[in-house]
């Protein structure tokens, strides 16, 4: 794939710098454009379904928000007898939220700021009738200011206005199980909507501030935690206590096992989060 990236750079007049990331469906490279600005070049693996890539790209093109990764171009390169789809996106140099958490938990003031920006972004995604379905710290990057969070990777996005591409979901449905909502894990496709992202975001924010999955109990491994979410158990008493002592009560509602019990609209969530 690196050879493909280098050839893309040569044809587009970019300078190839280095490989910076790799996922199941694509590889990401740091490149510089003609003016020397950093860009992210993402090359989709050819075995990846074209429809799936197209779905991700369509979703990104429909979004235009400061906290959502910006897609600047899409093209295809014929290399070695294979067509490679690639994108040019803004380069987010502030690292991932995963890296940020590794440096230490966020206090409630930091959490409020982070949450407010990401709720706004999730609301924007919802306004486009899309569900990201894979919100997790790895998919939240920061701009160079290390303050502005940006949601990336729409590889699992679901367009609620069209039929699902995957008629049969893989075990437990798409998404990273640790951050996934019960309706994803139980494969209740009809119950998936923007509130599914609300749940994922709630888990992300909880991990950032509380340091653990809110459904986890002492001695639980990740599979136990996921099992509790699947069974629609309640969050741990310790988490609920932390939520109250931190003045972050909306978090408890965001991660309710049932979508109907979460905030009904992004506006209601944003209002609750900021008051």
């Amino acid at each position: 794939m690196e050879a493909v990236a280098i050839e893309i750079c040569a044809s587009a007049g970019f300078r190839f710098a280095e490989k910076v990331g790799e996922g199941a469906f694509k590889q990401t490279f740091l490149v510089q454009d003609q003016s020397g600005k950093n860009k992210a070049l993402k090359v989709f693996r050819p075995r990846n379904s074209l429809a799936r890539s197209q779905r991700e790209l369509d979703a990104m093109l429909r979004c235009n928000h400061q906290n959502i990764g910006r897609l600047e171009g899409v093209a295809t390169l014929h290399h070695g007898g294979v067509d490679y789809t690639y994108t040019i996106e803004e380069y987010l140099g502030g690292g991932t939220l995963t890296k940020r958490i590794a440096e230490g938990l966020l206090d409630s003031t930091q959490l409020r700021g982070l949450g407010s920006a990401l709720i706004d972004a999730v609301g924007h995604i919802a306004s486009r009738n899309l569900v990201h379905r894979d919100l997790k710290p790895d998919n939240i990057l920061f701009r160079n200011d290390r303050i502005t969070p940006v949601i990336v990777d729409f590889g699992l996005v679901r367009d609620l206005s069209s039929s699902s591409l995957t008629k049969t979901w893989v075990l437990q449905g798409p998404g990273t199980p640790f951050f996934a909502a019960p309706e994803q894990l139980n494969n209740n496709k009809d119950l998936v909507d923007w509130r599914t992202d609300q749940f994922g975001l709630g888990i992300v924010l909880a991990v950032c501030g509380f340091g653990q999955h809110p459904y986890g109990r002492e001695g639980d491994g990740p599979e136990d935690v996921v099992g509790r979410v699947i069974a629609r158990e309640s969050p741990s008493p310790e988490f609920l206590e932390w939520v109250h002592s931190s003045g972050l009560e909306p978090l408890a509602r965001m991660i309710d096992p049932w979508p109907v019990a979460r905030y009904r609209t992004p506006e209601l969530l944003q209002y609750a989060w900021n008051t």
Partner: peptide, 13 residues
Amino acid sequence: QNRAMEIATVVSR
């Protein structure tokens, strides 16, 4: 079990 919550989830849209 849970049918009430499933229906409520869909219609609350």
